[in-house]
C-alpha cells in the first residue's frame, strides 16, 4: 500500500517535472499561424495567407517560398491607389522586427501561388516551405489548409 502510494507520488512528480521542462524550453524563434490557401478554380494562381510572429531577438526577413503543389511562389502585396488595384512583387522580401509579426491577409500581403500542379480541394493540406534570412534553420515547412474562395 505504502509502496503503491510512493509510486503514484513519483509518477506525479516526474510528470510535473516534464511539464516544467516543457514550459521553460526555449520557444521556437518563429511561429506561423492561420496558414491558409484560398482555393481559386480554373487553374489560375491562388493566394496564401498567414501570420508570422518573430519570437527571436533578431530582425528576420521572409525572402522566398516554394511548394511541391505549385510551380512558382512569389511574395506579393496588393496596392490600391486612385481606385486602381495592382500587385507589387516584394523583391526584398518582408522584414519582421523582434517581437513583431507580419500579417498576410486579403487586399494586402499574400503568397502568390502560381501554376497549381494538381486539383486541390477545400480541407486539403498544402506544404509551403518558407525561406528566411536571420534565423537558423533558414527553411521552415508550414502546412497550409485549403479554404473556400469565398472565405475572407
Amino acid at each position: 500500500m505504502k509502496l503503491a502510494s510512493a509510486i503514484v507520488a513519483l509518477v506525479v512528480l516526474l510528470a510535473g517535472a516534464l511539464w516544467w521542462v516543457g514550459q521553460v524550453a526555449p520557444e521556437s524563434p518563429i511561429e506561423v499561424g492561420n496558414a491558409r490557401v484560398r482555393l481559386v478554380p480554373g487553374g489560375g494562381p491562388m493566394a496564401g495567407y498567414m501570420e508570422i510572429r518573430n519570437h527571436s531577438e533578431d530582425v528576420i526577413r521572409l525572402v522566398g517560398a516554394t511548394s511541391p503543389a505549385f510551380g512558382n511562389v512569389m511574395i506579393h502585396r496588393t496596392i490600391v491607389s486612385d481606385g486602381r488595384a495592382r500587385m507589387e512583387h516584394q523583391s526584398d522580401g518582408v522584414q519582421i522586427l523582434p517581437g513583431d509579426s507580419a500579417v498576410f491577409k486579403p487586399r494586402d500581403l499574400h503568397l502568390m501561388l502560381m501554376q497549381p500542379r494538381g486539383a486541390l480541394e477545400v480541407g486539403d493540406q498544402v506544404e509551403i516551405m518558407l525561406r528566411f534570412e536571420g534565423i537558423a534553420p533558414a527553411e521552415w515547412p508550414v502546412a497550409f489548409t485549403v479554404v473556400p474562395v469565398t472565405s475572407q
Binding site: G44, A47, M87
Partner: peptide
C-alpha cells in the same frame, strides 16, 4: 481570373 487576392476578395 489570374488575380488571386483582390478579385476573389
Amino acid at each position: 481570373t489570374h488575380c488571386p487576392d483582390i478579385c476573389p476578395t
